[in-house]
């Protein structure tokens, strides 16, 4: 993945970090401004981030559905050619609920974002008919080996108008 597409520390915090930071900031504010009066623009920014995060999460789910259904995901990408981001052997991806929670980070300008999702990626490989074993396995309708591996899906997103699209996706070993 090109380094420029990585989110940097300049990016706005994730939802969880955002909420955590908000709590820390909120305490003195609560002292300073009784009645919990939050500036309208901050509420608006916070709402926008939450909406962006929800949209990105939905986009990710849509991508997962399409991968698992083996249907085209081109429409979810900025560049359709980037949709061919997975090894052809990948046949299924499932969120790994036992792993660290997802991380979505939205850039300060609100136009770019990154997502980190730990997933279980299942691959299937068709045997080459290069020995008797494989020839027989294929002849009986099998010959496909499946493996499952925990990997991190790293996605870069771009906001186009009011919608988010996927710029790139790659997976890395966890």
């Amino acid at each position: 993945m090109p380094e420029t597409s990585e989110m940097t520390e300049a990016g706005t915090s994730s939802r969880r970090a955002f909420l955590k930071g908000g709590a820390i900031v909120a305490a003195p504010l609560a002292v300073a401004i009784p009645g919990a009066a939050i500036a309208a623009d901050e509420r608006e920014a916070r709402l926008r981030r939450l909406e962006d995060e929800a949209a990105i999460r939905a986009l990710h789910q849509d991508w997962l559905r399409r991968v698992n259904a083996r249907t085209a995901a081109d429409a979810l990408f900025v560049d359709a050619s980037a949709a061919q981001c997975l090894d052809a052997a990948v046949c299924a991806i499932a969120p790994d609920h036992a792993a660290e929670a997802e991380r979505i980070e939205i850039a300060e300008d609100g136009k770019r974002a990154t997502g980190r999702f730990t997933c279980l990626i299942e691959t299937e490989t068709r045997l080459l008919p290069e020995n008797t074993f494989a020839q027989m396995a294929l002849a009986q309708g099998g010959g496909i080996t499946r493996t499952s591996e925990r990997r991190e899906v790293r996605a870069n997103y771009v906001k186009l108008g009011q919608s988010w699209a996927i710029a790139t996706i790659e997976t890395r070993a966890v």
Binding site: L127, T132, F133, M136, Q140, G142, T145, R146, T147
Partner: peptide, 23 residues
């Protein structure tokens, strides 16, 4: 190898038979 399993059956003093398992 993962997913590649067969079974030998030594059915006579000079026969080896092999069976390919399904998934």
């Amino acid at each position: 190898a993962p997913g590649l399993t067969s079974m030998h059956l030594y059915s006579t003093p000079n026969t080896v038979s092999w069976i390919i398992f399904t998934d």
